[in-house]
């Protein structure tokens, strides 16, 4: 199911077009927004369950591990369709406002009239309201994004990014012959970042050596 983000979907796409989005990018943008909205809706709904409901939900979906659509379906059984529908309404409102506020920053300086057109669209903004009864029975999109039994993707990404950082710093410390001095590696990478900022200034004053080591 595709969310209709604005009453005037065509105007919304025109707006993306005038901000320089190609047809492919417009489609990507809409899907990104849709993905983001559903992700947050389901997170919000699950977060609103009490411990007993969460346990019950886990029990109910554990036998349906191959069907991610089971999660919203079981939530609807536990809490009613309005629970998801209301969350969708709230999240889509916030997401669309956020999206518009971000798009305003992309308006070219020489196109101030775009701001007025964008504001007009913002005034028309209506959060999503849908009847979920049939949709909950089978929804490929939810199957694609929702996995309750595992940490949310964002959490895993943060953990993996930190692991990568730690491993890289340890490798650097070891390469410098200081395997127990990771803090030194942190300081040196920070200095590298700072140094790179100044390279254009320093470049003419540096004496380079060739690959053979001769100055």
């Amino acid at each position: 199911m595709t969310l209709v983000l604005f009453p005037d979907q065509v105007a919304f796409e025109e707006m993306l077009g005038m901000l320089g989005y190609s047809a492919e990018d417009r489609d990507l943008y809409k899907k990104s927004l849709e993905h983001y909205i559903w992700n947050h809706v389901l997170r919000e709904v699950v977060a609103g369950l009490n411990d007993e409901e969460k346990t019950l939900l886990q029990e109910r979906i554990s036998s349906q591990a191959d069907d991610a659509g089971a999660v919203p379906r079981e939530i609807a059984c536990l809490k009613g369709h309005a629970c998801i529908s209301d969350a969708l309404h709230r999240v889509s409102q916030k997401s669309l406002e956020l999206s518009l506020s971000q798009l305003i920053h992309h308006i070219p300086a020489d196109k101030p009239e775009y701001r007025e057109r964008l504001q007009k669209l913002a005034d028309q903004l209506q959060p999503v309201r849908i009847d979920l009864t049939d949709w909950l029975k089978k929804n490929e999109f939810v199957k694609e994004i929702f996995k309750l039994n595992a940490p949310l993707p964002a959490t895993r990404i943060k953990e993996r990014a930190e692991r990568l950082r730690q491993a890289s710093l340890q490798k650097l410390a070891a390469a410098m012959g200081l395997p127990d001095m990771q803090q030194t590696a942190v300081e040196i990478t920070a200095a590298l970042a700072q140094h790179l900022d100044q390279i254009e200034i320093n470049l003419p004053t540096l004496t380079f050596v060739d690959e053979g080591g001769a100055p």
Binding site: L164, K171, A175, M176, A185, I188, T189, A190, L192
Partner: peptide, 21 residues
């Protein structure tokens, strides 16, 4: 932003290791 910073620091470390090698 924090994740971006973590990855940037990791990249700098990897670059330094390559440089030393």
């Amino acid at each position: 932003e924090q994740v971006s910073e973590q990855l940037t620091q990791a990249l700098h470390a990897e670059f330094m290791v390559k440089g030393l090698d």
